[in-house]
Amino acid sequence: MSDEDSILALEGISRSFGGVRAVDGVSLSIKRGSIAGLIGPNGSGKSTLFNIISGVEKKNSGSIAFQGVRLDNLSPHKRFALGLGRTFQTPRLFTGMTVLENTMTGGKGQKGESPFNAPFPGRWEPQEMEIAKQAKSQMTSLEIEKLFGSHSNEISGGQMKLLQLSTVLMGRPKLLLLDEPTAGVAPRLAQDIFQSISQERVENATTFFIIEHRLQVLFRHVDTVFVMHQGRIIASGKPDEIVKKQNVIDAYLGS
């Protein structure tokens, strides 16, 4: 794959916790505009890898290139500014705020987020309405718009997942890392979430990298799957190829 095709390139990423090598020399490349899956048994290091890519967790070694830019020690907020968004496996929401306020927090470049502009609504209200409209349509497509006034700790676990997705999509990321977006969500809505993901890719050319345990749904939508086991990528390829690989089957059977 040439550099132009690749939106994210990892090279030898490692991370240990105490003696445990949670991520052990991971190298991979994600194609621009694709939907890639990351699967693997519990504890295989998937979330840790996402934490490293998004900057929430430090790496011990290796390098990360996002759209040709080396991320290395860039703080998470700068990575987001570059177009790298993420959600968390256990939803991390702003519990003192409503669903609408949570979603709107995801909006990028808000003029009213400066203390010098905040006291003067005239300076930020036009933009606020734009963001509110975007938030409303975002929430509507994820079917959480009726919850707009509920506090984010009053909604169900599945709705929390959707709210997280809704919030991060507000920033129009170029690459979105989703950590189990459908865990806790009803089967039909899981389908819908993947539909929105596919739609988002078409409309905004967003690239997705998705950790998911629901393999059936995942496989229907992804172009490439990476399989992680004990901190390493043990296989990658198209879904139908992956399921035939013996080492993948072994990893899942726990041998």
Partner: peptide
């Protein structure tokens, strides 16, 4: 001033930091 700050995007920003710094940072907030 506090009321205006509180009822603005800056108010959301402050509360986002209060409620979850990691999530706020991951959403591009410095």
């Amino acid at each position: 001033i506090a009321q205006r700050i509180g009822n603005s995007p800056y108010g959301r920003l402050l509360k986002s930091i209060r409620d979850d710094k990691v999530a706020s940072e991951s959403l591009g907030k410095d």
